[in-house]
Structure formats: structure tokens, C-alpha cells
């Protein structure tokens, strides 16, 4: 069985290794000009320089921390806002028919317009930059958080609720000690989707013009014709996105809230 897994894991490496080799060969002999695609080696040097100002290769050398803090701060704020509104509303609409019928139609109506479609309006309302970015992140990540929390809360096994009631739990305690924990697997799936969207909309917001942030660096580097920096920023955004997802998942696992919903 272990042998089988090893084989599959090896299979997973074939494509990236091939791509990397093609990339390396293509840039080695300048078959592809460096202003379109830099070599892997140049990219690594640029990334290290971006982080610790080792060589002063670009105008951004040593600025990784500043831009990362700006970007991560926006994701945390925007995503946090979406979760703070989306979770309680989702749980309520999953359990209370009146909440569902008052909220659901409007939420789904707004949801139909893709998040990107809000960009022009957001720029008119909030101006270019910070507030627009936060608005876009919150708006986009709200929907999966709300929908999945509601779905989780509405599909809690009625038997679990009965068990809680006969053990003496009040309606409020049922909500906090049965509904919310039982809804967690679905809720966390929604939070992860929302977090992923947060990073996507962070880049969109930052492209429209903020002074600091990885998206700003990308846009700025494009104007300077610095492809290395564009790619390096992309890599860091991907890296942070992945790390934040693992942190989110890990913290819920630690709290023991992903034990799986009850199955009869």
C-alpha cells in the first residue's frame, strides 16, 4: 500500500519538474528573452534580494516585509470583517426560518454580480486604494462564508438537537454547544473558500493603486518592465495564501472542531 502511495506521489512531481526543466532550458540560451521570462536562477536571486536586500537588484530590494505586512493586514481586516458578519448571519439563517426568508433572497441577488463587477462602483464610493480593497475583499469573501455556515447549521442532525434538549440545554445553549460545533465542517469549508477569495480580491484592489502591498509591487514592476518582480510577487502571494489556509485549518483542528458531523 505504501509503495502505491509513493508511486502516486512521484507522479505528482513529473509535471512540475518537466515544466521547470523546459523553463530552465528555454532561458539558459536566451531562447526566450529575459524581459519576457527570466531564468529560474535570476528569479531566486531577485526573491532573496527582495527579502533581505542582498544585492540591490531592484528598487524593491529589502522591501518584502513592508509590502507583506500591508497585504496581510488587508486580508486579515477584510476577511475578518466578512467572517464577523457572515458567520452569525449564516448560522441564524440556517436555523431560523424568518432569518432565512428575510436574508436569503437579497444575499443571493447581490451574489449574482461577480465581485469584480463591483470595482468601478467601489472606486466611486471609496476612492482608489485602501478602502476599496477592503470593501472588495469583504464583499467577495462574505458569500461563501454566509452560504456554508447556513448550510452547515441547517443540516445539523435533529437527533443531536434532541440529545442536547433532553440533557437539559436551553435553546441558546443548543445553539452554542450543538448547532455551531456540528456546523463546523461546512463552516470551515466556507471560511477557506472565503480566505482564498480574499487573496484574489486583495490583488485586484491593490492593482488599482495603493502605495504598499504585493499587488502594488506587481503593478509598479510592470511599468518598470521588471518581470522578475512581477513573478516574485506572484510567488509570495501564492505562498502567503497557502500558509494562511494551513493556519486557518490548523487552528480549527486544534480546537477539535473538525471531528466530522454526526452520522446516523
Amino acid at each position: 500500500m505504501y509503495k502505491h502511495i509513493d508511486k502516486l506521489e512521484i507522479a505528482g512531481f513529473i509535471l512540475p519538474v518537466t515544466l521547470f526543466t523546459v523553463w530552465y532550458v528555454a532561458t539558459m540560451e536566451d531562447a526566450v528573452p529575459a524581459y519576457l521570462l527570466p531564468s529560474p536562477w535570476d528569479l531566486i536571486r531577485t526573491a532573496i534580494d527582495f527579502a533581505i536586500a542582498s544585492e540591490g537588484l531592484t528598487p524593491y530590494s529589502g522591501e518584502l516585509l513592508v509590502h507583506s505586512i500591508a497585504s496581510i493586514g488587508r486580508v486579515v481586516t477584510g476577511f475578518g470583517l466578512a467572517a464577523a458578519i457572515g458567520l452569525p448571519l449564516g448560522f441564524l439563517s440556517g436555523r431560523i426560518a424568518l432569518a432565512k426568508s428575510s436574508l436569503d433572497p437579497t444575499v443571493h441577488l447581490i451574489r449574482i454580480v461577480p465581485g469584480i463587477g463591483w470595482l468601478p462602483l467601489a472606486m466611486v464610493w471609496f476612492g482608489v486604494g485602501e478602502s476599496t480593497t477592503l470593501f472588495l475583499i469583504s464583499l467577495a469573501s462574505f458569500f461563501p462564508i454566509y452560504v456554508n455556515a447556513a448550510q452547515g447549521a441547517s443540516s445539523v442532525s435533529p437527533m443531536l438537537v434532541r440529545a442536547g434538549r433532553m440533557l437539559g440545554a436551553s435553546e441558546l445553549r443548543i445553539f452554542t454547544t450543538v448547532i455551531i460545533p456540528a456546523a463546523m465542517p461546512s463552516t470551515v469549508a466556507g471560511l477557506r473558500l472565503g480566505l482564498g477569495l480574499s487573496w484574489a480580491y486583495l490583488v485586484l484592489g491593490e492593482l488599482t493603486g495603493v502605495t504598499h502591498g504585493l499587488g502594488a509591487v506587481m503593478m509598479d514592476a510592470r511599468m518598470l518592465g521588471n518581470v522578475e518582480m512581477i513573478l516574485v510577487s506572484m510567488i509570495f502571494i501564492g505562498l502567503f495564501g497557502r500558509i494562511s489556509d494551513l493556519l486557518l485549518l490548523g487552528s480549527f483542528r486544534r480546537l477539535n472542531l473538525l471531528k466530522g458531523s454526526y452520522e446516523e
Partner: peptide, 8 residues
Amino acid sequence: QSPVLFPW
């Protein structure tokens, strides 16, 4: 009939 314990 089934245990209906809280899995978390």
C-alpha cells in the same frame, strides 16, 4: 437507538 453522542 443510535448513540447520538457529540462527535466533537
